[in-house]
Design a protein around this nucleic acid. Structure first.
Lengths: 234, 234
DNA sequence: CGAGTCCTTGACCATAATCAAGATATGTGG
DNA sequence: CCACATATCTTGATTATGGTCAAGGACTCG
C-alpha cells in the first residue's frame, strides 16, 4: 500500500496508522453504488483508482451530479458524522477503494492529529469545488457552465496525472453525465457542446476529451489558470 | 464568553482552550465584508450573533449567494487551509464574531483533537447544505427552490432559537437575496413568491416571513421534516 | 418632503426544456 | 461475419420557464 501514489507525502508513523485503520481494499465494478443516499454506511473510503461520481436524487427521479470522484478523494466522510448519507457515490469505471471503518475516524483525530487536519483539508477543498459549481449552475449560461466544468475536470485529473499536458483527457463521462452535473438537459448540452466543437474550442469523441483552446475556454469560463496546490492525502 | 449559547456542550478544558485561542471579539455593521474573495484572511471566525451571507462573484458582477450564515456557524476555515479565500462573507445585520488567528487552527488539531473533530463536523454539515442547494438550483423549478430555501432557512434558524414554532421568522433577507441564492432573477422570484402567498402557503411582509402551510411546502419541496441534530460548536 | 430601498406589474424576448425520431457506435451470441 | 441489442449521440420542431427592460408604487428614515 505504501507505494500507492495517493499516500505519498505521509510520514512513516502516519502511514502505520493509516495501515492499522485500513480494514481492507475493495474492488467494484462500473455502475456499482459505493455509498447510498438515505443509508447509513459503516465505512469511509479513499479512492485508489478509477472514476466515480457523487450524486443526489429527488423522489421523482430527477438527479443532480454533485461532482466527479477521482483517485485521492475521500468519500463518505458524512457517514462518520451523521446517521445517514444524504448523497450517493457510484462507480463510473471499475474502482479500487481503501476501506476504513467509520468508528475509527474519531480515533484518528486523537491519535494522529495531523491526519485529522488532512481530513479537514479535504473537506474544505470539496467545499470550494461545490461553491464554484453552485455559482456556475446558478449564474452561468450553458456554454459557460460547460467550459467551467471541463476545465475543472481536466485540472483535477491533471493534478493526479490522469490527463496529458496537451489538453487531452480520457474520461468515462457521457454527455448525459455532463448534463446532470450542470443542471442542463441532455439535448441542450449536446447542442452547446457541438457549437463549442464547431468553434474549435474542444474535441469530444468517445470518451476522449481534448481542450484545443484552453485560453479561450478560460476566458469563457472567467477562470484563471489554477495553481496546482499540493495534496495532503488520506 | 462561557455563557454564550454557541459554546454550550463543550467541556471545561475545551472552553479554556477556545478562550486561549480566541484573539478577540469583533463587532461589525450591516453590509460589512467580514471576509473577502481573493484575499488571504489572517482570521477564522465563529458567529456569535447576527445574520450574514456567504457569496461568490464573477468578474462581470453576477453573484451567487452560497448560503446564509447564522450564530454558531464557523466561517473562513478556508483561510486556514489555502492561500486566498474563494468566496466572501458579508454581514446582513450587525454581527458579533469570535476571532481566532488562522495559525492556531493547526495547533487546535494537536492540542484538542475533539475540537478538531468538531471542525470537521461543521465542514461536513456545510457540505450537506451545499449539496442540497446545488440539487435545488440545478434541478428544481422556481417554486420548488423557494419552498426548499425557506424551509431550510427556517429550520436552521429554528434550531438556534431564532424562529418561532408557529412558522414565523424575522430575517433580514430581501427578495433580491433569495433570488441571488437560488439562481433566479428578482422579477421571477417576486412573481413566484406572490403566487405562493396567493395559494396560502406563506406570508412575506417587511422581513417577516411566515410559513402558513409547512406540510404543503414540504410536499412541494420534496423534503422531509428534518430531525433537529445536536450541534457541536466552535 | 425627498431619497433610498424594496416590492410590484406589464410587455416582450431568450435560453433552455421537452417530445420525437433517427443515426452511430459497441458489443453479443449465433 | 452478420443480426440484434443497447448505449450514446444528433437533429428537428415546438413549448415553457424564466430573463430582461421599463416604470410605477410602497414603505422607511432623516
Amino acid at each position: 500500500m505504501r507505494k500507492r501514489e495517493v499516500f505519498r507525502g505521509l510520514g512513516p508513523r502516519e502511514l502505520d496508522f493509516v495501515a492499522s485503520m485500513k480494514s481492507g481494499e475493495m474492488r467494484v465494478e462500473p455502475r456499482t453504488r459505493v455509498l447510498d443516499e438515505g443509508v447509513n454506511s459503516p465505512h469511509v473510503f479513499t479512492v485508489l483508482s478509477g472514476w466515480g461520481l457523487r450524486e443526489k436524487s429527488l423522489a421523482d427521479g430527477r438527479r443532480q451530479i454533485l461532482n466527479f470522484v477521482l483517485p485521492g478523494d475521500l468519500v463518505g466522510l458524512q457517514a462518520a458524522m451523521f446517521d445517514a448519507m444524504d448523497h450517493s457515490v457510484e462507480a463510473l469505471t471499475g474502482m479500487t477503494l481503501c476501506v476504513f471503518p467509520r468508528s475509527d475516524i474519531q480515533r484518528l483525530f486523537h491519535d494522529q492529529p495531523s491526519l485529522g487536519f488532512t481530513v479537514v483539508w479535504h473537506a474544505a477543498r470539496n467545499e470550494r469545488l461545490l461553491d464554484a459549481t453552485l455559482m456556475s449552475v446558478g449564474r452561468c449560461s450553458a456554454r459557460e457552465r460547460i467550459a467551467r466544468a471541463l476545465l475543472t475536470i481536466y485540472g483535477k485529473a491533471r493534478r493526479i496525472g490522469l490527463s496529458e499536458a496537451d489538453g487531452t483527457l480520457s474520461a468515462p463521462i457521457t454527455q448525459q453525465h455532463l448534463a446532470d452535473a450542470l443542471g442542463l438537459s441532455l439535448v441542450h448540452t449536446n447542442r452547446t457542446l457541438k457549437g463549442m466543437v464547431g468553434d474549435g474550442l474542444l474535441r469530444w469523441r468517445a470518451g476522449r476529451l481534448q481542450l484545443l483552446d484552453a485560453a479561450r475556454l478560460r476566458d469563457i469560463a472567467q477562470m484563471d489558470e489554477t495553481a496546482p496546490a499540493a495534496l495532503p492525502l488520506i
